[in-house]
């Protein structure tokens, strides 16, 4: 099934300067009871976003109307912990298309890519520059160019290359997913199985 294509994105950012944001924070387990992929955005960062009575916590960035945009900028080691893909669904469903961090947990990275959510890993230096600029001016925009594998601050020279495997890049640029690819390889898989039995 096609995933949403990604080419370039110019957007303001939402800063979350917290390290080790684990998937239990992104979407707590008690919201994993659904049997479809939709609607998880409503509970994104649930316990940081709302208090126990369900009132928005003013100090949390998603409740701060200065910050908007399709780029979430987070501290290092983002997405550690549980393998729940619901975390990627929640971030995407909320409206983000890119997560920037200086380090991503493996499973989260795979899950994000499988859902057309682009994880952009930058250096610690660029990440802190980004946080500084966003905090100075909430209107500051970044440009993420997948073709060029580049993220840059608009109206400034500062920018960085980021890594992505050429296969995953092609998938995102064209909206292909891994399952389509594997299904197209069925004959090869069957042949492989037969060789094992020899």
């Amino acid at each position: 099934m096609p995933i949403e294509k990604f080419r370039t994105l110019i957007s303001t950012c939402v800063p979350l300067p917290v390290e080790n944001v684990d998937t239990d924070q992104i979407i707590p387990a008690r919201f994993l009871k659904a049997t479809t992929r939709d609607g998880f955005g409503a509970n994104l960062f649930r316990d940081w976003r709302y208090d126990h009575a369900g009132r928005p916590r003013k100090e949390f960035v998603l409740n701060d109307n200065r910050y908007n945009g399709e780029v979430l900028v987070a501290g290092k080691n983002f997405g550690s912990g549980s393998s729940r893909e619901h975390a990627a669904w929640a971030i995407k469903d909320y409206g983000f298309r890119v997560v920037v961090s200086s380090f991503f947990a493996d499973i989260f990275r795979n899950n994000a890519l499988n859902n057309g959510l682009l994880p952009v890993q930058v250096t610690a230096g660029f990440l802190s520059l980004l946080f500084d600029r966003i905090h100075e001016n909430a209107e500051v925009r970044v440009m993420v160019d997948l073709e060029q594998q580049k993220i840059s601050l608009m109206d400034e020279k500062a920018g960085e290359q980021f890594e992505i495997s050429s296969y995953k890049k092609k998938c995102l640029l064209n909206g292909y997913d891994d399952i389509d690819f594997l299904l197209s390889m069925k004959d090869r898989i069957v042949e492989w199985e037969q060789n094992q039995m020899l």
Binding site: S83, E85, H86, N110, N111, N114, D178
Partner: peptide
């Protein structure tokens, strides 16, 4: 451990 898209991959192929 894998995500749900990957569960689907394994079920499918």
């Amino acid at each position: 451990g894998i995500g749900t898209s990957e569960v689907e991959m394994v079920l499918a192929s």
